[in-house]
Computed example of a mutant assay.
Amino acid sequence: MSDEVPLRLRTEETRAKTIASYGGLLIPVAILVATQMFNDNRLAAEGQRRASEQLLQNSQRCVSDSMTYLDKAFDESSTSETLKEERRQRIATLGGLLVQVCSDGGLKLPPTLVAQLQEAKTQSTDPATRDAATQALKASQAPTAPPAADLLRVYFHISREDQRPAARKLELWLEQQTPQKRVLVVPGIELVPGNKSPDVRCPLPSDCPVAGEVAKLLNSQLTSPLLPAKANDMGGAYAASPTIRPGTIEVWFGAAEISVKP
């Protein structure tokens, strides 16, 4: 009987063990993302900023911890070809797991890992390992998250909980738009009871022109309420605040029912 089947089984077993080992490192990141998604009504703008920063920190920690684990698990100076090949297999799998984490955190793969993926791609005797390393390297070359200055963050504010479904529909639509060719995200929908009038606010004067474009985009989807065509310039009152970043816009829907065009 050929040794190919046992080798393939060992390869798949190694890959499964690697995913089980490293997959757990992604749990803190997944928890943070889920928390942001489902608790948006409880997160104020400052809380959302901290959550985003925590996500980035966990991404960085994930990369660092994974590389440390790998270095401890395998001795690079080993002359055993079996150990070298197993290391290549784990490198290829680790690279695939970390590419998305790095991308979500706006990071690139560490140069050390890139070099090891290159080595796995060219020197592994296992076609599956070479392919996995190739795919990880290809994915790592894709653009990472846009620079903070190019990102638009549009915070939605509702005054009644029953406005949330319509606001959520607008959120999903708006995130597909690119005003001034900029990537746009809606970090959350915050419930602020008592606000009666629709408004679009720009905490920093430099963001008022694009805030007006956001208002125009939203009005194209609304039958009520209609947002002011001109953004409310907050007069630079937050210019010195470290918590307000360029590209921050607030949309307040007021107390009226939010009606979205079919």
Rank of each mutant, 00 (worst) to 15 (best):
Leu117Gln: 02
Phe38Cys: 04
Lys17Pro: 00
Arg50Leu: 12
Leu83Pro: 00
Asp75Val: 03
Thr122Cys: 02
Ser159Arg: 07
Leu172Ala: 13
Val200Cys: 01
Leu83Tyr: 04
Leu94Thr: 03
Ala145Leu: 10
Arg15Phe: 14
Leu25Arg: 11
Asp150Ile: 04
Arg160Ala: 14
Asn39Gln: 14
Ala45Ile: 14
Ala167Met: 06
Gln48Ala: 05
Glu250Ile: 05
Leu97Val: 09
Arg164Gln: 08
Gln163His: 03
Lys17Phe: 07
Ala115Ser: 08
Cys102Thr: 05
Ser2Asn: 12
Val185Met: 09
His157Tyr: 12
Leu184Asn: 01
Gln118Met: 11
Ile189Leu: 11
Arg168Ile: 07
Pro228Ala: 10
Ser52His: 07
Leu55Phe: 10
Ala229Ser: 14
Phe156Asn: 07
His157Gly: 01
Thr112Ala: 13
Pro165Trp: 04
Met67Thr: 03
Gly96Tyr: 00
Glu4Ser: 15
Ser241Phe: 00
Ala149Glu: 14
Glu175Lys: 04
Ala256Leu: 13
Asp150His: 06
Leu109Met: 05
Arg130Cys: 12
Ala128Phe: 11
Gln176Tyr: 00
Ser80Met: 00
Pro225His: 06
Arg10Ser: 11
Lys108Pro: 07
Pro242Ser: 07
Glu213Gly: 00
Gly106Val: 08
Arg201Ser: 11
Asn232Lys: 09
Ala215Phe: 01
Leu226Asp: 02
Ala136Pro: 09
Glu85Tyr: 04
Arg245Ser: 05
Cys202Gly: 09
Thr18Pro: 01
Gly23Tyr: 09
Val183Ser: 09
Thr82Ala: 14
Ser124Asp: 00
Ala51Gly: 00
Glu86Met: 07
Val33Leu: 03
Pro203Ser: 11
Gln54Ala: 10
Tyr22Lys: 03
Ser197Thr: 15
Thr144Asp: 11
Thr223Asn: 12
Pro193Lys: 01
Ser103Gly: 13
Glu46Leu: 12
Asp65Glu: 08
Val63Leu: 13
Met1His: 08
Glu119Lys: 09
Pro165Asp: 10
Ala149Ser: 13
Ser197Lys: 13
Asp131Ser: 11
Gln60Cys: 01
Arg160Ile: 04
Phe74Leu: 03
Gln176Phe: 01
Cys62Ala: 06
Thr144Cys: 06
Glu81Leu: 13
Tyr238Leu: 12
Pro143Gly: 07
Ile244Arg: 04
Leu152Arg: 00
Ser21Ala: 12
Ala142Lys: 13
Ala239His: 01
Pro242Ile: 02
Ala255Asp: 11
Val99Gly: 02
Val183Asn: 04
Ile258Cys: 10
Leu152His: 01
Pro110Trp: 10
Ala256Arg: 09
Leu204Gln: 02
Met67His: 06
Ala139Trp: 13
Ala167Lys: 02
Arg15Cys: 08
